[in-house]
Design a protein around this nucleic acid. Structure first.
Lengths: 342, 342
DNA sequence: TTGTACGCGTTATCAA
DNA sequence: TTGATAACGCGTACAA
């Protein structure tokens, strides 16, 4: 019934060698005659033996797993378009190599640090991804303290002991703004994410900078929270301005799609009365009405790169270089249009 | 620098007892004098000792982790509103108990079974969640074969060796349809998910049945794929029917929101010309324009229940009962309205 | 190439 | 009853 899994001893016995030799053969280490290696591998194959993760974990003190902690507002545990694709990218690296991904979803109220502590102290993972990087992110110090290898998704300002895998948010933002400027817009507003996040301020800053290059000031700058509800609120405030913006650039698609709804609810027609742009190119962006002009990154590639980098760091072979991914690109759809002279 | 973690031997030495006794004390097993137990626990506390997961894993042959494999179309690695909340619910159970969640995202092209095999054979997890349950789901047989404990999210038709945690999709669907009937609609169509999925057919079947109870036939029945793109296609086909439906019930919000866009793109006004309803109550449902009438379940509770049930099964204490969760409830918003006589 | 200690708890056996 | 001892789970690594 319960087919006892063969152990390394079984393989050794069958091949007529010692356990040590089996281990050497499997890991392709020198010091064994080729004939012996073949015999051992054949024996392993016949028995269907695969080394036990648990035993390996214990003896080499590694988990063969990486960790991802996602902190989310419990009320808004909704879908971030980033993570599924990011995780798939991570997975594509881990599955070769027999690693696993340990996921923790921490609701924002909880102690986030506890999540990382658990992962580290329980020896669950060999390293973690630091996503949604924040300014002065306390997790960097925490991971250092815990001796937990990490890669940051995007680069912190200060010095960091960890490699960074970056996808520059600025070029995409610049493209959006320039696209709107080319369409004749002059009163352009931005709905930003929480300024604690590096990517939120990167987008907001380059929004402002691009306008400044054109000799303009933002027609409005709302700090929101990346949620749909927040997008609605911010949009309402912007639409109530005495000098109503003719275009709004949102820091993500969720806020943009919600903002689209808010504008329509307010009786405006998009894009005739208001141009709207998002960021992420989430699945729905293409299909809402009108289709959302937005910026598309490649979270899958992000995941791959992050996993590879983290593994390099863990394997400790020399210095690990930061990775710069190709930036997000503008995707023009129907929600942005030439400003009508009226 | 590297503070060697204390081992059970250190604790034993400090308390002046044997390793075995420390283990007994920690696990609250009988056979030790209370005074000894106290002394041991105090010693453990002073040393900050916590048993090593890895050693425990090896000796008791358990992973102390549960697994979730999500299969997704690579093109549409978008976010299902269900999973983040579901996972958070699972997590809330696992974090007490020191368990972890191992996640795998398998793109649909890949060999899904390989994912489960890896999890089982690598001893990564003690059990898995079978989500997105399909008819004649091969994973049930696979898990049985692998000796991998599982819980099914929703109940398969045939007999299953595994407990089921169910959230009945039918009452919510019935509510939607009755809501539309009460608004005077008679030509109501449905956009279903792939019929391979149990929840897709449950929704479609109860849609048809509820109409039949009212002496009506569906004004259209499109089989789609739960994606936004699919929702668009299906909507276009329905709107092209000679007898155009006055209301469309979608099997999920993503299709519904996309359908909303398609209808608007076709020049229709929702809800004046067409009522639209979804399923899930995803974050955006409330904020698109018009707000989407939909059905709300509680995926967080689903996750909690599933984790608890799976743990019971793994602990093997007696029979594990199926769990029936409170059904999803109708949430009425602006996308459905009384049928105008015209 | 082999033998064996080691990583670290758990549990069965046995003595007091 | 109370507690110690030793075997066990399964590879890895180093001395021989």
């Amino acid at each position: 019934m319960v087919k006892d899994r063969p152990t390394i001893a079984d393989v050794a016995a069958r091949a007529g060698v010692s356990k040590g030799s089996v281990s050497f053969a499997l890991n392709g280490r020198p010091g064994l005659a080729q004939a012996t290696v073949d015999r051992i591998l054949a024996a392993a194959d016949e028995l269907g033996w695969r080394p036990s993760n648990r035993a390996r974990s214990l003896s080499v003190s590694k988990a063969f797993a990486l960790g991802l902690v996602i902190t989310r507002d419990p009320a808004v545990l909704s879908s971030d378009p980033f993570f599924p694709a990011f995780i798939a990218g991570v997975e594509s690296v881990l599955s070769r190599g027999g690693q696993a991904l340990v996921l923790q979803v921490v609701t924002a109220g909880d102690d986030e640090a506890a999540g990382y502590r658990r992962l580290a102290q329980d020896g669950r993972v060999d390293g973690v991804f630091l996503s949604d990087l924040r300014h002065e992110d306390p997790r960097i110090e925490l991971c250092r303290e815990l001796g937990l290898p990490a890669v940051t998704l995007n680069r912190p300002e200060g010095s960091s002991p960890f490699p960074a895998v970056c996808l520059d948010d600025r070029p995409g933002t610049v493209e959006v703004v320039e696209h709107l400027l080319a369409l004749g817009h002059r009163r352009i507003a931005h709905v930003a994410g929480p300024p604690t996040f590096v990517h939120a301020t990167a987008r907001a800053d380059s929004f402002v900078a691009t306008l400044a290059d054109a000799g303009l000031e933002p027609a409005g700058l709302e700090v929101s929270d990346f949620t749909a509800a927040g997008g609605i609120e911010a949009t309402r405030r912007l639409l109530a301005l005495p000098e109503r913006p003719t275009a709004i650039v949102y820091a993500n698609d969720r806020m943009a799609i919600a903002g689209l709804g808010a504008a329509q609810q307010a009786g405006l027609t998009v894009p005739d009365d208001l141009s709207v742009a998002g960021f992420d190119d989430s699945e729905l962006a293409e299909f809402v009405h009108p289709g959302l002009t937005t910026v598309r990154a490649d979270p899958y590639a992000f995941g791959e790169a992050a996993a590879n980098t983290l593994n390099q760091l863990i394997d400790g072979t020399g210095d690990v270089a930061d990775v710069e991914l190709p930036p997000a690109r503008l995707v023009v759809r129907r929600s942005t249009a030439r400003l009508e002279e009226s």
